[in-house]
Design a protein around this nucleic acid. Sequence first.
DNA 1: CGGCGCATTAATGTATACATCATGAATTCA
DNA 2: TGAATTCATGATGTATACATTAATGCGCCG
Lengths: 249, 249
Amino acid sequence: MSERDSERSISQTVRAQLALRDMILSGQLRPGERISELQAVEITNVSRTPVRLALVRLEDEGLLQAIPSGGFMVKAFTERDILDSIELRGTLEGLAARFAAERGASARSLEPLKECLADLDQLVRQDPVSVEAFSAYVTMNARFHALLTELSASPPLIRQIDRVSALPFASPSSFVMAQSALPEAHQILLIGQDHHRIVVDAIENREGGRAEAIMREHSRLAARNLRLALRNRTHLDLLPALALLQSPA
Amino acid sequence: MSERDSERSISQTVRAQLALRDMILSGQLRPGERISELQAVEITNVSRTPVRLALVRLEDEGLLQAIPSGGFMVKAFTERDILDSIELRGTLEGLAARFAAERGASARSLEPLKECLADLDQLVRQDPVSVEAFSAYVTMNARFHALLTELSASPPLIRQIDRVSALPFASPSSFVMAQSALPEAHQILLIGQDHHRIVVDAIENREGGRAEAIMREHSRLAARNLRLALRNRTHLDLLPALALLQSPA
DNA sequence: CGGCGCATTAATGTATACATCATGAATTCA
DNA sequence: TGAATTCATGATGTATACATTAATGCGCCG
């Protein structure tokens, strides 16, 4: 094989998984479409064994759906499915925040979260937020949510949150970029950041209920962004995840 | 192969999965123990390809853990992990109940749930509850929870609940049988059944918050049962799931 | 002319041979 | 004697040939 060095070190299974995922998210494989193993073999240039494993992995991820008689098809999602997935993530992150608060996260363990919060503050401060700042926000925001999840110190919960967030439209940063095209962009960013501040404060003060509630509300900001983006239909190209929407996007 | 007819129709993958799961839950494979593919091949008498798929499936189920360098080991759980998993299920079932209430489950769709509730009432009524009644309660209880979950009418949520409940100690009926050995058995059964009644009532009256809260509390009954069973250490043989506990059971 | 049944085909399910990589033990050199 | 290196062993990763089952289209019968 004369692949690039960077691609030689990873396994065929992962390579196939990445290639197929890309094709699904980019819409080259349409929702409802059956995807045969041989077809996948042609696409990815790896043999059936790793392809099959990749398909199984993508099924757990939630991108594919097993057909009873065998094989897989690309899963289709309704707008309601997406909204529910966001609410689901919010609920789980709320639980994580409550655990962190009730179990007394140590001052030391809170430090990285606070640093992250400060970094986000820095980014949000500028009034016309540059595109680069938005991009940096997405990264930092993902880090904030990951740190918060870990603060729960609950492996089973962390696992579930990771599984929900694996869906491309359910992760904490899914619709932040879509925001950037909206007039209310800066406003929403400020509100979201205030939620971040509140949850850290609540955890510090052992206010479990408050921590839980604010994370639930926080996720509804993503729901709002989604709805706005769908209504305005501007810059929908920023949202590859919506290729999975079954009603015409 | 001269297997029994009932086993001839299912696939080798499923057969391997069942065999390995049994060995894990029965404690024949100990937590932390590495389980090689060849070893699994010897155990199950199927070839490596389906064995590997079975191992991957058991990993999603949460019974196995992938080793970074490759292969799998039997996952070990702490008591805290189990309690968190129960709280997690309660949280998700709470969300399901809230969805059902807020979205207005139809009278027709509530009927099966009410029938199930009545059946459970019947079983709980007898004062010294027979072992058979306990066993029937376990089945009916599982049905009640499944029906309630479906009432959410949210595929993403249903999927997550199913995934959490796949863990043998996180399913709604995990510790009901353990209860049967306790003096407080009947009392606890009555309380649990009252929770069932309340959640149906709350859904009917569109009381989302109440429905959510009661399901959360309901799961804590399972947590109580677990703790009681572990402290008393009587009839721990009723709980094969505890083979996964890493501290000496 | 329409529906049922059979044959063909193409898919998934399974087994095994081969390649590659991690691991551990033994030996040798400093 | 200790440590490092190398070799042997056994594991997982991959490819492919074979078996079996589901889908499809054609033809035949009613």
